[in-house]
Amino acid sequence: MTREETGFHLADFLRSARAHLHILARPTSAQRKRRSRPQRVHPGTWDLLDTLEAACRPGFVLGRRLDVLAHNRLAGRLITDFRALPAAQRNQARFVFLDPHARDLYANWSAVAADTAAMLRLDAGRHPDDPALSALVGDLAIRSQEFRRHWSENKVHQRTTGTKGYHHPLVGDLTITYQALTPGDDPDQILFVYRAEPGSPSETSLRLLSSWNEPTTQDPTALRDLGNRRH
């Protein structure tokens, strides 16, 4: 299995592990204060998500505990529409480990699951006394054998850049690259920006998803037919 397939880059992993241990050793009062406040997405970040949408690029924001704080329409179509879920279920870890759709969606679900558990453990190191995080970990451990296995490996990981594959039910296989950014003044938020190689079949698939609500492609069956003609 290649490094890209596992989703772990050794240098990033070692840096994340060192940061994780350092934070565990010295949690600060500033961290505790930030954790007590509800997370808000800055208006400028919402505008950026709209700009990414216009450029046919999925974008979404993760907060503490991998909560999904915001996403543009295209990200919702590519992954899942978290806005349609109850607030307590708008969480990336819950989606990956508990939603059957996730296993079919990700081309390498096992790597995504390992990454997700490692990202959540990194957050646990930053906020070791967060009761909501403890409740999330406990629920995932009860309901997912795979989560228990990955959590017990004690790995930590902070995503920066990478590549991910999808098996989308409407437009078929896509390969995207992503970049993780910290928006605004909240270090506990991560903005993920997705893109496909210009001129590639994956870019065509993203444009098909983006045009879903246009009059010629309102019917999901019509969209699926368009995707079939692409292959």
Rank of each mutant, 00 (worst) to 15 (best):
M1L: 15
G7L: 03
H9D: 15
F13G: 03
L14N: 07
S16N: 05
S16Y: 05
A19G: 09
H20V: 03
L21E: 15
H22A: 14
H22N: 11
I23N: 11
L24K: 02
R26T: 15
P27H: 03
T28N: 01
A30L: 14
Q31V: 01
R32N: 10
R32H: 11
R34S: 06
S36A: 15
S36W: 02
R37N: 04
P38E: 02
P38K: 00
R40C: 13
R40A: 15
P43N: 04
G44P: 00
W46T: 13
W46P: 00
D47H: 12
D50Q: 13
L52S: 05
A54T: 07
A54E: 05
A55E: 07
R57S: 08
R57Q: 12
G59L: 03
F60V: 02
F60H: 13
F60D: 04
R64P: 08
R65K: 09
R65C: 06
R65H: 06
L66H: 07
L66T: 08
N72S: 11
N72C: 09
R73K: 05
G76M: 06
R77A: 07
I79M: 11
T80E: 10
D81E: 14
F82L: 10
R83G: 09
A84I: 00
A84D: 04
L85E: 07
P86T: 03
A87R: 13
A88Y: 07
Q89C: 12
F97Q: 07
L98I: 09
D99Y: 05
A102Y: 07
Y106A: 01
N108Y: 10
S110M: 14
A113R: 03
D115L: 15
A118N: 14
M119S: 15
L120T: 08
R121A: 12
A124H: 14
R126M: 09
A132W: 04
A132Y: 07
S134I: 08
L140D: 12
A141S: 13
R143C: 04
S144P: 04
S144N: 10
Q145N: 08
R148T: 14
R148D: 13
H150G: 11
H150D: 15
W151H: 07
S152F: 02
V156N: 03
T160H: 14
G162P: 04
G162S: 08
H167E: 06
H168R: 08
G172A: 03
T177Y: 03
Q179S: 08
A180F: 10
L181S: 04
T182F: 00
P183N: 01
G184T: 00
D186P: 07
P187F: 00
Q189I: 01
I190C: 13
L191C: 02
V193F: 04
Y194T: 02
Y194R: 02
R195Q: 12
G199L: 01
S200T: 09
P201C: 05
S205Y: 01
R207N: 11
R207G: 02
R207K: 14
S211D: 14
S211T: 09
W212A: 10
N213W: 11
N213D: 15
E214G: 11
T221H: 12
A222Q: 14
L223N: 06
G227R: 05
R229C: 11
